[in-house]
Amino acid sequence: MSPLERRRLGSGLVFISPWLIGFTVFLLIPVCLSFYYSFCDYSLLQTPAFIGLDNYRELLGDPVFWQSLRNTGVYASLALPAGMLVSLGLALLLNQKVVGQSIFRTLIFLPSLVPTVASAMLWLWLFNAKLGLINTLLDMPPFAATIQGINVALGAVHLPQIQTPISWLTDPAWALPALAFMSLWGVGQTVVIYLAGLQDVPGELIESAELDGANAWQRLWNVTLPMLSPVIFFNMIMAIIGALQEFSIPYIMTGGGPARATYFFTMYLYDNAFTYLKMGYASAMAWIQLLIVLLLTGLSFWLSKRWVHYQSK
């Protein structure tokens, strides 16, 4: 290495050092330590005592662990596709050249700027069974008639009917879907990413499809969506990670209730770490969570070969 190269390396390291030090001290070391603690009995206040696989073994036999995992899975399976569809739909609408386009874009993005606690308080009122806006709307003739129609259909196939007014957050059957519905409130950021992706779809491809006689739906299905697939894939991965880490909204709105119906994996992890002072147990949970995220991400990448199309290819 020449003196100039050495000097450049030195300068480079100096400039990267704030990140490097931050990464090492606040991420790398804690991550490594948490892996070690997951094999320890550790309360933060006592020296970690190595107990082998006990934490993992105990987790497997812990019904609350499984319940929190199941809740998170159900939530993710509801919130993820709904969020993807709604954000993509909104992005497609906002991509249309209409008067006031920028106003609509701002309006859609605005909710994602509202602080989480404020959003939670707002939605607590919206979901209020007696005074909430949602139930008030559902009580209006067109919606009430629709619910009645659904109930007739449910009754015909001997399924439980929808009871109105719906106790959104106090009925175990509705609490998780309600939170998944609420998650749509924050789709603004995803919409912006989709919009950026849509700007990148080559106009000539759409034009040639149009010349070939493709209608709007065919252009969307055969051109826009394949060209947008890397962005959809990116948003999907981020949504999977986000859904599996959901914490603050249910923590504020339901506290995990009723009867642990909205008790998420991350909430149980937090309680173990900071309420029950079982940092080792919580570390084991964190590593299981990481493993699940890795597995799902890996699976998504593997499946992506079938439906994600990159322009360079």
Partner: peptide
Amino acid sequence: RDSMTDFTSG
């Protein structure tokens, strides 16, 4: 049960 959860959720 349902009447009570309706009531308390208000």
